[in-house]
């Protein structure tokens, strides 16, 4: 079936099977920055922003995206001109294998558009359903905090240095 939607500002028609999920459909038309790391709706690697909200594209049937406005990682910066969130991830060494990163950056973008100055706790909650196996979340959290400053134009840590610890640590639900 044909699905009409807007991807990264461009009206797009996607040809997709009835059962196809949006992640597969987007990948099929070239948005390879949408990653798949689980059997659907859990790992966060396929997050895109749908009508202003970060969601896992694989958890949504492509047909439900009819008429939606979808933004993928491809809509952010280019290699020569990174978006401030992307630049912050690079500067903080927050990227290892990178597989989880597009999804995490889309979630961060969503977070920062609603909460321009998030606490460490708020950042951790926001990316709570973005599985990253490489970083232990430490540097991505620091990168997102710094990105908030960069987007804000104030309080920018330009040295790529470590954001302050903030004192909030484990949530505690790991122990039950």
């Amino acid at each position: 079936m044909e699905i009409e939607l807007t991807v990264n500002g461009t009206p797009t028609t996607i040809e997709a099977g009835k059962e196809a999920d949006l992640a597969t459909a987007l990948r099929a038309v070239g948005y390879k920055g949408v990653k798949c790391g689980c059997d659907g709706g859990v790992c966060g690697a396929s997050k895109v922003i749908i009508d202003g909200e970060a969601r896992m594209a694989c958890g949504m049937p492509a047909r439900e995206a009819e008429g939606s406005d979808v933004e993928t990682i491809e809509n952010l910066g280019t290699q020569d001109d990174l978006h401030p969130i992307q630049q912050s991830f690079v500067d903080h060494f927050a990227v290892q294998c990178g597989f989880c990163i597009p999804g995490m950056i889309m979630e961060a973008k969503d977070l920062l558009s609603e909460t321009p100055d998030p606490s460490e706790r708020e950042i951790r909650e926001a990316i709570d359903d973005n599985v990253c196996r490489c970083t232990g979340y430490q540097k991505p959290v620091e990168a997102i905090r710094d990105a908030a400053g960069r987007l804000d134009g104030g309080g920018v840590a330009t040295d790529g240095g470590t954001a302050t610890g903030g004192g909030t640590a484990a949530g505690g639900d790991h122990c039950d």
């Binding site: 390879k32 491809e74 290699q79 992307q86 500067d91 990178g98 990163i101």
Partner: peptide
């Protein structure tokens, strides 16, 4: 030195190619 990780720009823009890509 804190040299930028050489594949990072590709990774953060989603342009890096893994096997499935």
């Amino acid at each position: 030195r804190p040299t930028e990780k050489h594949d990072d720009r590709k990774l953060v823009t989603g342009e890096a190619k893994y096997t499935a890509d």
